[in-house]
Amino acid sequence: MIPYSPHPHQEPVAGALAVNVVNISGAYEHQRAPALNGVNLQVPVGARIALVGSNGAGKSTLLKLIAGLLPLHQGTISLFGHSVGVCRHRVAYLAQRSEVDWRFPMTVRRLVGTGRYVHLGWFKRPSAADRQIVEQVMAQLQIEHLAERQIGQLSGGQQQRTLLARTLAQEADLLLLDEPLNAVDVATRAIVSQVLDALKTQGKTVLIATHDLGRLEQEFDGALYLCEGREVQPPPGSFTGVHVGEWAVESRPLVAELVEATSHLPLTTSHQQPTTNPS
């Protein structure tokens, strides 16, 4: 196999954090992405973490940096113990729907199949096993009846399920999902929730940017609250996180002036730190 990326793919380092973001900052005006200012995030393998904040808070920027779509100016990011770009086959990214050219002639099956490309590399065609995985994930997202349909004929919810199916087809260990529930129908919402639960059972690590604060506590192990590219604290009594394996999810001290300025927002820092003796 000849990988697309100039780095040969490497397997995760045993015992390393799935995501370790240390003090990253940077402005991305050229890419029309909000700036980040000193963000930290430690995510243990198997955790499901929400990135919360209003539009322009930097949720997408953070996901894009982790996915390797934006250059890192300051700070470090490591994924499974490697720098960004080394574990591409283990990291799947679900962009917002608007970033796809839906008018391009392509069937749902073929778009879902592009999730296998990272394992194929240059010149190789999908094998029978690849095709079988594609059929499985389409069934899981209940889009198998749409398999031969053109992507231009899908509804918003169907588009979202198709893209999520593609993300699952990659069989990655870390999934970066940018607003998977943005403007989708109730049925899609239910299916996506089931998929997320299934990922949890499989021990996958999932990072989700979301507006939806309703069920954070039931659905996530921790949350990182972002405001204008900075982490902020949660309001008193709100969800701060739980233990995931040997890692504890903790909140961090308040930054006073930020809380003042953004008191209309749900403010939290959540942060996973290793504890020598998990209680």
Partner: peptide, 16 residues
């Protein structure tokens, strides 16, 4: 690859 970069350049970049 040409097909993928036409329909979804963002995802194409993510996989390298």
């Amino acid at each position: 690859e040409l097909e993928l970069t036409s329909v979804d350049p963002g995802y194409a970049a993510v996989i390298g």
